[in-house]
Write a protein that binds this DNA or RNA. Structure first.
Lengths: 333, 333
DNA sequence: CTGAAAGCGCTTACAG
DNA sequence: CTGAAAGCGCTTACAG
């Protein structure tokens, strides 16, 4: 690599001072004369010296690495989220002189994560998604590794950062109700995920608030593949509803294309709302109401919380992030 | 973290042997008695001891980390590639006990990468994409950091792994020509990228081979946004061609939706071929011929090449990977 | 086959 | 304000 690998020793020798002093000049810790410090700092600048993060790590029993755990099996619609999240975390970590080591896991295989922890290569972990019965979460908790989850966990002792899906979905639903659109059908995905449950709750909250009866036969859950979703759509179309509410954008995409094939016009014949607003749908004029969450904010919050955690500072168990209700075109009034 | 952080010292003390011996038992290097080794190994297993990668790194002046450089500004269509690539690299690295630190860069900002190198946190780097005038590539070369590029570089001294785009595109084009579809229009994207150039070359190769004259007015380059692509489509439609060849899937997507809006039927009115075959188009019955590349193979090759490189082994400067020509539906005959 | 010792490149009490 | 020394947890000549 670099032909001349400068070390703190070289500098000390060159400047005729002890390496203790050099170290202090760099870190800023401990008392040190202004002159001496300047001398060292200047030399460092001129010779482009950068301390070895590894050595510093060893001495401080830290790694200055965090791991971001990503699902290797994530579906196409989730990719933009994970990409943005990765970017956000990476940027934030960099600012604190941390680096992020990726570990790819699947629902039942967390060997990469385990290796990372066992090899003592990270100071903490961000869990990029949460599952109801999450082995990664369980493992980390058991090992006592500092970690935060992006998304909610059912375990109240777990540090978590999440968008306020429940409120958001309540509010989106309320928007419809307030426009007297009350005959709505909800299509939801895998109810094993915590976020799905929260969204459903938010929907019900709005029903309560507006005293709209919850019609169970207009709520279609666990529609986790295209055919199940299309079946739901067909069924719903017979029921003369005013609006589809899709729990996520995968569903929404399927619904839209199904409606197009069925020659159903949006918003004339029926309206469509989505509890999410990914780039994939961002430009779709067909979605009348949707929710927008800020990935970067999420990433930043996760990263900062984790770093504070590693730093032994107090952090809130649960951080709830905001959202935005997006109303488009014809639904406005 | 773990309450009981076992170290090699503890083991040595416990077993009444020197830590040298313990180290040897673990690494397998150096002569050591079978009995002693077994004793150590057993103890290690029972007490679930794992050596600190950081400490080992310091002692060996290695980090056991590689960095994967990803564009933070990549567009939606590229996400599946990068995700799959990340997954492949991560898996492969793990097998060799390496970890991958992500660094996100943009065309003109490589500060994250620079930090990583300067802090001595990685042994080598994989460049996830190549640009014609790549500052990351230039930086790494200058610093003497081992690295390989996923994709071709113009610099003949750079270790690179790439799909054989030129041959692939030649072959795809030949498929059309061999079916006597010779009146074709080519729509290409940013000609600053090396891959675009290769694809164009491949196309021309096929023209040569089949003695089909290259009609420059049927070649539309640098169509890097939707409106430019649509303009090209409109223009081409007037020219009575038999087949569109799209240089990548972003273009192909735009072309398809434009054609749909124009009510042009595929493949009756016109055929569509793509020099790429991402998941995004995978299920599109509308694309008649396309190319398929194996991301995992690419990731594996990059990773292995880099690790060999770090290991001071000889590696081929250029590794060319295969491809598959995918022929669908109506174009078959 | 095994061990004492030096070293990887830093940090940090402790003493002055 | 500054330094000698021990230590972080391993590896690796060198010697026996």
């Amino acid at each position: 690599m670099d032909n001349k690998k400068l070390t703190i020793d070289d500098i000390a020798r060159e400047l005729q001072i002890s390496k203790t002093t050099v170290s202090r000049a760099i870190s800023g810790k401990g008392r040190i004369g202004q002159e001496t410090r300047d001398k060292v700092l200047r030399y460092i600048k001129e010779n482009n010296y950068k301390p070895s993060a590894i050595a510093r790590g060893l001495a401080q029993s830290k790694t200055f690495n965090i791991s971001l755990v990503m699902p290797g099996d994530s579906s196409l619609v989730d990719l933009p989220f994970y990409h943005g999240f990765l970017w956000g975390v990476s940027n934030m970590a960099t600012k604190s002189d941390y680096d992020v080591i990726i570990s790819m896991v699947s629902e039942k295989d967390i060997t990469q994560l385990v290796r990372l922890i066992e090899n003592h290569k990270v100071d903490g972990v961000i869990l990029g998604r949460t599952l109801e019965d999450d082995i990664a979460e369980k493992y980390l908790k058991e090992k006592g590794v500092p970690f935060v989850t992006a998304g909610s966990s059912l375990d109240p002792t777990v540090i978590q950062v999440d968008n306020d899906h429940r409120s958001a979905c309540r509010e989106l639903t309320s928007v419809l109700f307030s426009k007297h659109i009350t005959k709505v059908a909800l299509i939801g995905s895998d109810m094993k995920t915590i976020v799905s449950k929260n969204r459903l709750e938010g929907f019900k909250d709005a029903c309560m608030e507006y005293q709209v009866p919850i019609e169970e036969d207009l709520i279609y859950l666990d529609r986790d593949n295209e055919s199940k979703i299309e079946a739901a759509v067909e069924d719903i179309l017979k029921k003369n509803v005013e609006c589809f509410i899709c729990m996520d954008d995968y569903i929404c995409g399927c619904v839209l294309s199904k409606l197009e094939r069925e020659n159903v016009k949006i918003p004339e014949d029926i309206k469509v709302a989505s509890f999410y607003d990914s780039i994939l749908l961002e430009n779709s004029k067909a979605v009348n109401v949707s929710l927008k969450f800020n990935v970067t904010e999420m990433a930043t919050a996760c990263c900062n919380t984790l770093l504070s955690c590693i730093d032994k500072q107090e952090v809130p168990i649960k951080t709830l992030l905001g959202y935005e209700v997006v109303i488009r075109g014809a639904t406005q009034s």
